[in-house]
Amino acid sequence: MLHLKLSFHDYISIFVHQTDLTLTNHIKNRLAPYNLAPEQNLIMMLLWEKDGLNQSEIAEELNKEKSNIARMIFNLEQKGFIWRESIKNDRRSLRVYLTDEGKKLGNHVIPLTEEFNELVCQGISNEELMEVRRILSKMCANVQ
């Protein structure tokens, strides 16, 4: 019989993963009425902050493969939330813009996202949040 060095519950990576699943499932349910998946919402949040990003900028900001971003952008375009425009002199590069419907969607989803962030951070001080960010950044750096 094999033995783990640590107990299942002692692996911090498993705890972080389970926390992410819990948070993602909660926001997934909140976004469902708006026909928006959590990962698609990340793209929309970037565009609500700065419209007209190109696909590479979005991929870099979200730390995702360009092919995954392209697929999500295609789906958001099919839903009528965004539109793409080719950049002159570079046919491979596209800028992504919000449609009027995508802008209106922000009126509903941005407050929901802010409420979710408040819920997640409830009872946690700014110092503790900064420590969480610092530690999670270290963990990411350890595996990169």
Rank of each mutant, 00 (worst) to 15 (best):
residue 78 Q to E: 15
residue 48 W to Y: 11
residue 13 S to C: 10
residue 95 R to Q: 15
residue 12 I to Y: 12
residue 49 E to I: 01
residue 90 D to G: 00
residue 69 I to A: 07
residue 31 L to H: 05
residue 109 V to E: 02
residue 85 E to V: 09
residue 57 E to P: 04
residue 125 S to A: 02
residue 125 S to N: 01
residue 51 D to W: 05
residue 73 I to T: 11
residue 36 L to S: 07
residue 45 M to Q: 14
residue 26 H to Y: 12
residue 40 Q to G: 14
residue 106 G to T: 03
residue 54 N to R: 04
residue 71 R to P: 00
residue 118 E to H: 10
residue 134 R to H: 12
residue 79 K to R: 10
residue 112 L to C: 00
residue 43 I to W: 04
residue 138 K to T: 10
residue 112 L to S: 01
residue 136 L to Y: 04
residue 123 G to H: 03
residue 86 S to F: 10
residue 39 E to R: 15
residue 32 A to C: 04
residue 50 K to P: 01
residue 67 S to W: 09
residue 125 S to F: 02
residue 88 K to A: 15
residue 92 R to Q: 12
residue 38 P to T: 03
residue 34 Y to N: 08
residue 2 L to I: 10
residue 126 N to F: 07
residue 6 L to A: 08
residue 94 L to S: 11
residue 84 R to Q: 15
residue 110 I to D: 05
residue 69 I to Q: 04
residue 72 M to Y: 12
residue 26 H to M: 11
residue 18 Q to G: 08
residue 8 F to H: 08
residue 13 S to Y: 15
residue 90 D to Q: 09
residue 69 I to H: 05
residue 70 A to H: 05
residue 79 K to L: 13
residue 6 L to Y: 13
residue 11 Y to F: 15
residue 33 P to H: 06
residue 56 S to K: 10
residue 6 L to P: 02
residue 25 N to L: 12
residue 126 N to L: 08
residue 111 P to E: 01
residue 10 D to K: 09
residue 85 E to P: 01
residue 34 Y to L: 07
residue 75 N to A: 11
residue 50 K to M: 09
residue 80 G to V: 02
residue 104 K to F: 05
residue 3 H to V: 10
residue 143 V to S: 06
residue 132 V to T: 10
residue 20 D to M: 12
residue 135 I to N: 06
residue 49 E to T: 07
residue 116 F to M: 06
residue 90 D to W: 03
residue 135 I to E: 12
residue 104 K to M: 07
residue 113 T to E: 07
residue 112 L to Y: 01
residue 71 R to N: 06
residue 33 P to T: 07
residue 19 T to D: 07
residue 76 L to Q: 04
residue 65 E to R: 06
residue 4 L to M: 14
residue 81 F to N: 05
residue 77 E to V: 00
residue 123 G to Y: 03
residue 103 K to W: 00
residue 7 S to F: 08
residue 133 R to C: 05
residue 42 L to H: 07
residue 49 E to V: 01
residue 66 K to P: 02
residue 28 K to P: 00
residue 50 K to T: 13
residue 57 E to M: 09
residue 42 L to Y: 06
residue 102 G to M: 01
residue 85 E to A: 11
residue 60 E to T: 11
residue 23 L to P: 02
residue 41 N to R: 10
residue 73 I to V: 15
residue 59 A to P: 04
residue 39 E to V: 15
residue 124 I to K: 06
residue 14 I to S: 08
residue 18 Q to D: 15
residue 97 Y to Q: 02
residue 2 L to D: 14
residue 143 V to H: 08
residue 52 G to V: 04
residue 24 T to M: 09
residue 32 A to K: 15
residue 41 N to P: 01
residue 135 I to L: 13
residue 29 N to F: 06
residue 18 Q to C: 11
residue 138 K to G: 09
residue 46 L to T: 00
residue 129 L to A: 00
residue 5 K to F: 08
residue 113 T to Q: 12
residue 43 I to S: 09
residue 95 R to T: 14
residue 21 L to Y: 10
residue 13 S to T: 13
